[in-house]
Nucleic acid binder design. Structure first.
Lengths: 206, 206
DNA sequence: GAGCTCATTTCACAGTGTGACATCACTAAG
DNA sequence: CTTAGTGATGTCACACTGTGAAATGAGCTC
């Protein structure tokens, strides 16, 4: 006879999800979640740093997979090819099937201010590895950051679109469509921008 | 003799800023801040929804100014001209002088997880008005969102760059430079992407 | 000076998150 | 068989966050 049932973490996640859907996030307390699983709230906080975190375990997983996946990029890709390749990987790993559960999660997150906030900062976790990989490929930190943020934002938009649909278009195609359309609207550098940049960088160095 | 000193809100902000710099954000309690100003913590929470908010009053102000400013855009601008114009406005309103205080604020925010999280969601407040304005100009909600996020991200990167410098380059120029460089790295739609988009959108409508 | 206003205080409270220490089934030596 | 871990959980105590509801009291108005 085992002293404790296995899979406490998973059961906590499940119970939390249920309760949040039944009563709302704010109206559900941690002791309540713990009670449904038959543990103490202290145990809950041992598994999850805070109440919100119970819904975002996946994101951390995706970030790890992403970091691992990005290091396996075929050599010789140009930066834009690298992005296409990375989007494909993410789409294949994180966006197959289980659309319905993702929809429910999305609805939950959208329903509460604190959850929306946490979701945003989870994007940081995603574009962190991405940005690092781009720096390794020779981009400046600032450029890498902007490119990573843009790509992840496109991915997010594409994911939203994907969740609205029922067909089987893959997320990376949607993301690339979005990026393509984006380019059409971005101001072209040549039009304006006196570009007093490169000069002043040196002045600071003094 | 006045029962209460004027400008409680400003004095709370000031006291909080000082204490956060002296001891760190996590190590400073709300009662402590309130005590330094000579009020109760209850009063603090009447001015600020939560402890973090005391550092982000400006962002809300900027968002309002932005929303107001965007509605005054000269007619006849194309989308990319509109973006250039908007960036100019933001730079003129929010990024003149007081660089040193902004640097200190930035350092504070970077020093704490919860503050970084809040800073991110404040960006939502900024790109909300932007995105709305773009929708009014005929973009689809998704496109508007992506374009707005990209622009604000560029602004953020440019602001970071600006804070690192001492010269007088304006933020909007830096942002446009960043966007220019960004375009160079974005995958071109023509290369790939079978683009199964427009068809399926209609199918959903049924 | 009666009454009103309004920022603030006071009080009570539910919930969050954490550190320190106790418990107890199970396990690996000896 | 005993003994000494090990590791997930419980227990307890606590500081802090954030929020309703009612009381206070200075200054203003008529």
């Amino acid at each position: 006879m085992v002293r404790w049932e296995a899979g406490t973490r998973e059961r906590l996640i499940h119970a939390a999800f249920e309760l949040f859907e039944e009563q709302g996030f704010a109206e559900t307390s941690v002791p309540e979640i713990a009670a449904r699983v038959g543990v103490t709230s202290r145990t809950f906080f041992r598994y999850f740093g805070d109440k919100r975190e119970v819904l975002f375990g996946n994101e951390d997983l995706m970030a790890e997979q992403l970091r691992a996946g990005l290091s396996e990029a075929p050599p010789g890709l140009s930066t834009d090819e690298f992005i296409v390749w990375a989007l494909g990987g993410i789409a294949r790993e994180g966006f197959t099937g289980n659309r319905d559960e993702m929809r429910r999660l999305r609805a939950l997150v959208e329903s509460d201010e604190h959850l929306r906030e946490r979701a945003l900062s989870k994007r940081l976790v995603l574009y962190g590895p991405f940005s690092d990989a781009l720096v390794c490929r020779g981009l400046s930190p600032m450029q890498a950051r902007l490119l990573a943020e843009t790509t992840i934002a496109a991915l997010q938009v594409a994911a939203d679109e994907w969740l609205l649909r029922e067909d089987s278009v893959s997320v990376d195609v949607l993301a690339l469509d979005a990026i393509g359309a984006l380019e059409q609207y971005l101001p072209k550098l040549s039009i304006n921008a006196p570009a007093a940049v490169d000069v002043d960088v040196d002045e600071i160095a003094k």
